[in-house]
Computed example of a mutant assay.
Amino acid sequence: MATSVSPAPSAIRGLPAPSALLELLKPITWFAPMWAFACGVVSSGVPASGHWPVIVAGIVLAGPLVCATSQAANDWYDRHVDAINEPNRPIPSGRMPGRWGLYVALAWTALSLSVAAALGVWILYAALFGLVLAWIYSAPPLRLKQNGWWGNAAVGLCYEGLPWFTGAAVMAGALPDHRILTVAFLYSVGAHGIMTLNDFKSVEGDARMNLRSLPVQLGTDRAARLACLVMALPQLAVIALLYAWDRSGHAVFVAGLLAAQLVLMSRLLKDPRGRAAWYNGTGTTLYVLGMLVAAFALRALAQQGAA
């Protein structure tokens, strides 16, 4: 049985407590887009020296701004589902009273666009696209998260592909090289599987509220097998591309990380429901390390081209 949480005094007065605001924005979720942005910076091949203010601003944009906006919007439109799955979240618990969850999401959207505009036109376009995806993921009438196929694709793109693109674009000041776009897209596809595993924690509430996550649609066993396949295949494509681009050392490194993931996947599939969170803390770590290895391969290619 969930433990009830009493609203903070500020919430009782109609204002959210600072701790509730921070919890609403879910800092733990910022790591993925910030990491992907860093991979984009590395892959551009442009030296970081002289660009640190822009890099720091881009990291803030990717995590504490755009990603946090998506979390606030998601919590607002998921408040009825969270009352079942996670009743201690700020909105269902009453620590984020009234319509404050919505107001925070709108304010963070405006702030994100302001920062993106200051970083350049390509960054503004990417941020605008990401914010549109964030809102239609959670908000009716589209509410992409109602179907795991579409919702997970939107999150994968926002968490991996767009931040990677943004990091490379902010360094180059232009549209990134097609090889960067290809690798960023492939890792976005793989993130679809990561998001499928993330849905395992809320199967009961999703089913009751008619949210058709993939574990609800397919059952946990089939959804876990699909997630593993979706995570592995894009990495195989990245390995093949790195070989084709004469970055065999990097390809071998990514292949080794994938091999370790396959070992962990075999254990995951023996108890998908019980080990989904465990895999997201182990196999996913290897996945994102592979992203960084691929980024260094792209960096070497960019520097070769500039030589």
Rank of each mutant, 00 (worst) to 15 (best):
R13W: 13
D206R: 10
S6R: 10
F37A: 08
L128H: 01
G98I: 02
M265F: 15
L229V: 15
S266I: 05
Y77D: 01
A251T: 08
S93L: 01
G45C: 00
S138H: 10
V183N: 02
C39A: 12
W135L: 12
L197N: 08
V155G: 06
G190K: 00
C39K: 04
L22G: 07
N152L: 11
W245P: 11
A11E: 09
W52D: 05
D199I: 03
A8K: 06
A17Q: 01
M96W: 03
A38C: 10
A277S: 06
A306N: 05
G148C: 00
L242E: 11
A297G: 09
D82I: 13
V104K: 04
T196W: 08
G173A: 07
D271M: 03
L186T: 02
I123C: 11
G156K: 00
A154T: 06
M171Y: 08
N85A: 12
N147C: 09
A8W: 02
A38W: 01
A36P: 01
K270N: 10
L119D: 13
Y279H: 14
R79L: 14
A295R: 09
W149M: 02
P234I: 09
G219I: 05
F37K: 00
F129R: 01
W35H: 11
S138K: 12
A191N: 03
A295G: 09
L61E: 01
A48V: 07
L211A: 08
G173M: 10
M171W: 00
A223Y: 01
